[in-house]
Design a protein around this nucleic acid. Structure first.
Lengths: 350, 350
DNA sequence: CTGTTAGCGCCTTCAT
DNA sequence: ATGAAGGCGCTAACAG
């Protein structure tokens, strides 16, 4: 026998509902799952009693029976600093969550040190049937998770991409055209030497932006320089200092994220320079952060919760085994604020 | 029969392990749960086979059998803006998660519009036995969740407090002494008119800080003013403007969070004033945000992941029905940076 | 249209 | 030290 030592509180089961309604357990199940084969009056009576007694089907029993966990998973393999500072993650989670909870599907979250650990979490989740599928974020170059998840056979969708081999469905966003818009804006203002403070080059989306940045700059005959960071504010400040203390400092800097941009702004001020007088600044992600600093930052605005929603819908389709291809979400738009302007003639070098 | 239409992939069960090991299912269970009654060699063989086949017990079956979900819940009832901007939440979640995952317990997260919706999520989770217990954050005055959770009988711990009626265990933090340290610091620098930009007064922790602020100021014969906000950056900027455009503006402002402080700093600059020359600023929460703005902000530093860890441990105890009382976590410490200094004599009023 | 029943995969008591 | 068997609460075939 496997009953717990003593119940914390006598728990209500579908049998209780059935007894009170004078029907069988099967009828209760039918009523709850809106299946035909029950008179409306019986159905209504059963539902009313369930409601009154505050009964919901035991999720474990249901999961066992229908072979579905009614839960999706998300593992985050980033440093705590990045996770806590970047508004992106919470906004994304909010989108995911809203889509999931409207269908009474739970969201299970875990953090991991690196992508290999992440993959072993996925393996375990799937072996335990704890989740029905997962969302995978922060796609890396030669990402071991893609192959790993694909062979696992667990429904999964990649946030980012697109993936050339199509091993996994993905929901992506056109980075190149956004970068194009930014560079156009800067070139239009008259900037000739621009720079980019990028995230980790091992991230596919950062790498894609790097390429787009270089190409677009070349097309417009601008000199373009790229400094890499690990997404932390310190590294953003460092990169900014490095760029601005070169022989031919850029007159505009494009940052990969809002956090990097804000820390870059701090460094510009610390160097005794002004924005946008000496340097123009563009943030690659928008958030209220960009709006509360002085000057407010020109930034790329995009609907991140919607990104989460799209990814979740795609995952749900994968779980239902509905074949749909990759999905592209609307690209971000540049919002011009006070941090970008025409460059000064030429700064007196100290 | 309740088998799924067709298995996505033949799934491994404990029977498979048992067969391969030449033992019964019971033996597999014993091996896995480290129970006596098995020879070491048999145990090792079973474990090795399970490992090799990548088998983990089906979580639904186990949950059903042991009447435990092996999952804990957290619902967040804040605006998306606050959630995404305040580093607090992710850091807290990281702490919770680390404690949970080290014991293979899942964390289920959901967002809610308000505390009433939150309570109904709790009710449902508990009725479904989807979680074994929950953490409750952002304690409000006369919080309906306390009473609600208490009568539900679901293990729950309140993050914040302390609760006077002891309806639920809590893990709290001494707000008053931190505020005391801040005000002492400011008074020590010579400030006589100080102000506080507070969060929502309906939040117990904000209210506690309000009281402490007033009392401490009175004790030191300082004039103290409080402006309330909804934690959003805009409201922080507004409150700052209001305070500084009064007849007798404060020479120092204490903010309830890092986000409020940073937006306040932006407003101070926008008003053409300098920090700390014209106004000193203290942030009630520290984060790298405070360190990357110019000047870096004097702030209260505390170990938020550790707060999450403590709360989680307390919850796990509640679930195991181990009686332990409320827990107080170490208070934050003031880190003095460049945003606080002696006040100027008296500013020329415009 | 309604009721009965087997079985989902595991844990655990009891008998061997 | 090991195996057999019942039950956790639900769903869904099937019989009535």
């Amino acid at each position: 026998m496997a009953a717990p030592k003593e119940d914390r509180a006598r728990r209500v089961t579908s049998s209780d509902i059935a007894r009170r309604a004078g029907v069988s357990k099967g009828a209760v199940s039918f009523a709850l799952n809106e299946r035909p084969g029950l008179s409306d009056s019986t159905r209504a009576r059963i539902l009313a009693i369930a409601e009154e007694m505050g009964w919901y089907p035991n999720s474990a029993a249901r999961a066992l029976s229908v072979a579905r966990a009614h839960a999706c998973g998300l593992v985050l393999a980033r440093t705590l600093t990045t996770l806590s500072l970047e508004p992106f993650f919470m906004e994304f989670i909010a989108g995911v969550e809203s889509e999931l909870s409207s269908r009474s599907i739970a969201l299970t979250i875990q953090m991991a040190e690196d992508v290999d650990k992440e993959l072993s979490i996925h393996r375990r989740w799937w072996a335990e049937r704890r989740v029905d599928g997962v969302l995978m974020v922060d796609l890396r170059k030669n990402d071991p998770r893609v192959e790993g998840l694909a062979r696992l056979g667990m429904p999964a969708v990649v946030v980012g991409g697109p993936l050339k081999n199509g091993a996994l469905p993905c929901v992506w966003h056109d980075e190149a055209s956004v970068i194009g818009e930014i560079v156009d804006h800067l070139a239009g203002l008259g900037h000739r030497r621009i720079a980019r403070v990028a995230g980790l080059a091992s991230f596919v989306h950062s790498a894609a932006r790097n390429n787009a940045f270089r190409q677009k700059a070349r097309a417009l005959s601008l000199s373009a320089e790229i400094a890499s960071t690990d997404f932390s504010p310190e590294s953003g400040a460092d990169a900014t200092r490095r760029l601005l203390s070169g022989a031919e400092p850029p007159t505009a800097i494009v940052y990969d994220s809002d956090v990097l941009a804000v820390s870059g702004l701090g460094m510009v001020h610390e160097l005794g320079l002004s924005v946008p007088g000496d340097v123009s600044i563009v943030a690659g992600d928008d958030s209220l952060l960009c709006q509360v600093v002085g000057p407010p930052l020109t930034a790329v605005e995009r609907d991140i919760p919607a990104y989460g929603v799209a990814a979740t819908r795609r995952l749900l389709d994968a779980i239902e085994e509905n074949a749909v291809g990759d999905i592209q979400v609307p690209r971000g738009r540049l919002t011009v604020r006070g941090s970008t302007a025409r460059p000064r003639r030429r700064r007196i070098r100290v």
